[in-house]
Amino acid sequence: MVRRHRITPQGQNDARAPPKRIRGIRKGRVTSRETGGIMFKHIMVPVDLAHTESLGHALDTAADLAAHWGAKVTYVGVGTATPGKLAHNPAEFSEKLKAFAKAQAVAHAIDAEAHATIAHDPTTDVDDVLLHTIDEIGADLVVMQSHIPGLVDYIWPSNGGKIAGHSRASVLVVRG
């Protein structure tokens, strides 16, 4: 199980550091040499806007990593063409996701964007849509929330499992 941890160059356990300090970090304090050659520029975070309350760990982790490397975060939402709990139509869904991304950007002082997609049949297509989106937006790291595997995962792999298994980007699956 991956423990929740926060990463700051100073080793401080503080994700909500003042914006100025983090901007400073972004401007070249962290180099690929310092991070052992690993440097991520574009983090994709799949979000289920209907269940944002259970996304806390993944959102915080992604924001911390983004602050650390000065990476851009794109929050990806998969909506439906038919009206759903969140929105009446794709345009409204897109607006809601933008608002969510903006709130994240302000809360964590990071550079964040929203990317809304629709799936014809989200129940089965979410993984494929996310995999497609990783390539489309050119993300190099995916940070996503997942549940602790259970019996069912032997039959149906979790979203995180499938993304990690098929994507060329690095994937950090954060347990809930």
Partner: peptide, 23 residues
Amino acid sequence: TDNQGIPEPEGHADIIETDYEIG
């Protein structure tokens, strides 16, 4: 099969205002 992004609104549609939330 490709589920594309939806960058633009889909144009005018006459949404019915209801307090009912799907689900």
